[in-house]
Design a protein around this nucleic acid. Sequence first.
DNA 1: GCCACCCTGACACGACCGCGGTAAGGTTGC
DNA 2: GCAACCTTACCGCGGTCGTGTCAGGGTGGC
Lengths: 126, 126
Amino acid sequence: MTTLTIHEAATTTGWSPRMLRYVEQLGLVASPRSAAGYRLYGPAQLQRLRTLRELLETHGVELGDVGFALRLRREPELATALDEWFEAEPQRPLLGPSTEMPDGDWLAFEQDKHSQLLTSDRRDTA
Amino acid sequence: MTTLTIHEAATTTGWSPRMLRYVEQLGLVASPRSAAGYRLYGPAQLQRLRTLRELLETHGVELGDVGFALRLRREPELATALDEWFEAEPQRPLLGPSTEMPDGDWLAFEQDKHSQLLTSDRRDTA
DNA sequence: GCCACCCTGACACGACCGCGGTAAGGTTGC
DNA sequence: GCAACCTTACCGCGGTCGTGTCAGGGTGGC
């Protein structure tokens, strides 16, 4: 069985040993340990590390983001809460920092539509 | 039509004007603008701001995280890439490729290991 | 028994984030 | 026509991220 030490795994995957430990700390790729506590990287872990690296590069994602994605999978209620919030979207989200559209129309439309929905919740402290 | 200025919207929703602009910059809650460029917050936006705030508080999430969730919805390929990565054969502890085992077992093992990482890092390995 | 490796902390540091504040200017209501 | 708002753009400051590195100590092959 080919199990590499952390340093070997690092050199073959392009991470640094430090980062391998960090990735494990984020809960993304953990390796089994030897009796003495050494991390033992097998083919499966190496594969995951390489695909993870590719994932980050091709999509411009950061480790923390993947960590959050992991959290989403661990906390379905969080995921559904977010889903609901986005789904309940009464307005169009921006496509960029400042995407302009010939609005004015959908403004009135949306607000009208929702003022109906929200009639019971009118407590403008104005 | 009840449209509040950014300052009014801020006071009624509990955000600061600064944060309202920041939230818009993240693409989470954008308000329509007046002809002169002033942000005009209607009931729909106020509602979103309040629910957003509640979302953050109840789930211990940060704005950046919600921003990333938004990114996931905007970039389905990113979402599927992440899905695939998480779905992809997670590392089995030193077993051959054809060795079948009920996934529930080591999955539980993994999650246990992770929950340790998440809950606390104090580990007394005597 | 050596020496090269591994482990877990911890410090450090540049870069960025979250957010307040301020400056320089446009808009609006009275 | 001015005060009170709004706009964007920037500075700053504390916090976090990604990463290297070092210290103190265990492991293991030769």
